[in-house]
Computed example of a mutant assay.
Amino acid sequence: MPQRPYIVGNWKMNGTRAQLAEARAIDRGAARHSGVRVAIAPPFTLISTMVEAVQELTVGGQDCHSQVSGAFTGDISAMMLKDAGAGFAIVGHSERRAMHGENDAMVQDKARAALDAGLEVIVCVGETEAQRDAGKAEQVVGEQVEASMPVGEGFVPRLTLAYEPVWAIGTGRVAAPADVAAMHAVLRAKLVALYGDEGSNVRILYGGSVNAGNAAELLATPEVGGALVGGASLTADSFLAIVAAAAPAAD
């Protein structure tokens, strides 16, 4: 049976309790599209309250620490996310890699910690504009997958890979469908190399200025199993338009 498309909203550093009204509206809309799995990663401060406010949505964290506990001021462990009701964690987002100096080894450690805590994991990879212009996009992203994805018994069913070209995040620029298809084919091959036949079942999301206008074309691209959405996930109107674009025709 084919997997449902997976549409994940990353609210980043946006959202107060007032925005829970948008989450509730997204939740009601998601109930009308049972053929799509819908999730939101709000700020840490909203996780527990959002979990209580919604029924259809999966709620997750935007990051986690690799350690279970300790003297890590300002950080959140995967076990804390789990305790707050989160179902998944995003790790390796390009903003974490660029602004917080996270490398592939750190991302892999975080992914493993989240899995050990019982969470699902979305691991992000993507190239910069300079790397693409130099003809190194597939090499760079392939190496990120090899070094960032955790390998272990029973991990695969809880893993999702997200391809987010750095130059397309929040810029309004979107990768051409042909480029997306080419990169996702590379990613699929890497996943099969890492996990064997199970690697063919790992969802690969596309992220990078996904919106209502381009979602249908991107989601129809081979090997694209969903979308990781930034700014367009902050309101029900814009996010549900993307969910609707992902819905099967009979949904």
Results as ranks from 00 to 15, higher is better:
residue 196 G to V: 06
residue 160 T to Q: 13
residue 109 D to F: 04
residue 249 A to D: 00
residue 205 L to P: 14
residue 27 D to E: 04
residue 201 N to E: 09
residue 140 V to S: 13
residue 94 S to D: 02
residue 63 D to T: 13
residue 59 V to F: 01
residue 233 S to P: 12
residue 144 Q to M: 02
residue 229 V to R: 09
residue 233 S to T: 00
residue 80 M to K: 11
residue 202 V to H: 02
residue 27 D to R: 03
residue 109 D to P: 01
residue 170 G to W: 05
residue 48 S to Q: 01
residue 114 A to E: 11
residue 216 A to M: 07
residue 248 P to F: 11
residue 162 A to Q: 02
residue 114 A to L: 08
residue 193 A to H: 03
residue 109 D to V: 12
residue 212 A to F: 14
residue 238 S to M: 15
residue 104 D to F: 06
residue 28 R to A: 15
residue 156 V to D: 12
residue 164 E to W: 05
residue 30 A to K: 05
residue 155 F to I: 01
residue 133 D to F: 00
residue 53 A to E: 01
residue 16 T to W: 04
residue 15 G to N: 10
residue 246 A to G: 04
residue 34 S to T: 13
residue 86 A to I: 14
residue 19 Q to W: 06
residue 23 A to V: 03
residue 238 S to K: 13
residue 191 L to D: 06
residue 202 V to I: 12
residue 47 I to N: 06
residue 147 A to S: 05
residue 179 D to V: 01
residue 211 N to C: 14
residue 214 N to Y: 13
residue 116 D to V: 03
residue 174 V to C: 06
residue 197 D to V: 02
residue 5 P to V: 13
residue 188 R to H: 06
residue 211 N to I: 14
residue 40 I to L: 04
residue 204 I to A: 09
residue 68 V to K: 09
residue 97 R to G: 11
residue 107 V to N: 08
residue 86 A to N: 10
residue 141 V to T: 00
residue 142 G to L: 10
residue 84 A to D: 00
residue 204 I to R: 01
residue 221 T to Q: 14
residue 94 S to R: 04
residue 32 R to A: 09
residue 54 V to L: 07
residue 177 P to V: 15
residue 184 H to F: 07
residue 183 M to R: 10
residue 172 G to W: 11
residue 77 S to N: 10
residue 41 A to P: 13
residue 44 F to G: 04
residue 82 K to A: 05
residue 155 F to Y: 10
residue 41 A to G: 09
residue 146 E to C: 01
residue 164 E to M: 07
residue 9 G to N: 05
residue 103 N to K: 01
residue 142 G to C: 07
residue 101 G to R: 02
residue 143 E to R: 06
residue 182 A to V: 02
residue 61 G to K: 12
residue 251 D to G: 08
